[in-house]
Amino acid sequence: MSVALSSEDISRAITRISHEILEKNTDPTSVTILGIPTRGADLAYRIAQSILDISGIEIPVGALDITLHRDDLRIRPPRPLMDTVIPLAGVEGRTVILVDDVLFSGRTIRSALDALGEVGRPARVQLAVLVDRGHRELPIRADYVGKNLPTSLNQSVKVSLIERDGADEVSIDEVSAAENL
């Protein structure tokens, strides 16, 4: 196991993503941030807090569970559903920024786009991830990336966050390729 991002690296990445969001979206009041549970949602709340700290703007933030929209339900055991929390402002006509911890095949984001479509019709959708580890299987890319982390299929990326795991850290483990599927 090797540490790819330390606690400080993660803090810096969140701050940078927050700045980039403010730069890219000239009207931050039209932005809604939705994290993909579980750690994507934790990161979403951190980014919203960071934006508040930087600019004093309170961005509506929530969580979007994508379990029922996954395309691997036929072949994987069912998993428990997570909370979906849509802020009062909703998503209709807004700029929705999806947040996830790791961008890998892109299938989770595809499912998230489907799930988002059930909630409403945003004006535009952007994507923020803490780590992009490559190996995309779908034409999906992130608008905001904390760290590009080149990996092999024999590696797994583990994100730990204080909210859930007691400490902030991103690490890389060696595993068999089959376990990564």
Binding site: L68, H69, L73, T84, I86, D114, E118, V119
Partner: peptide, 8 residues
Amino acid sequence: NGTKKLPT
């Protein structure tokens, strides 16, 4: 939330 159908 208004969703009538899921692809599950």
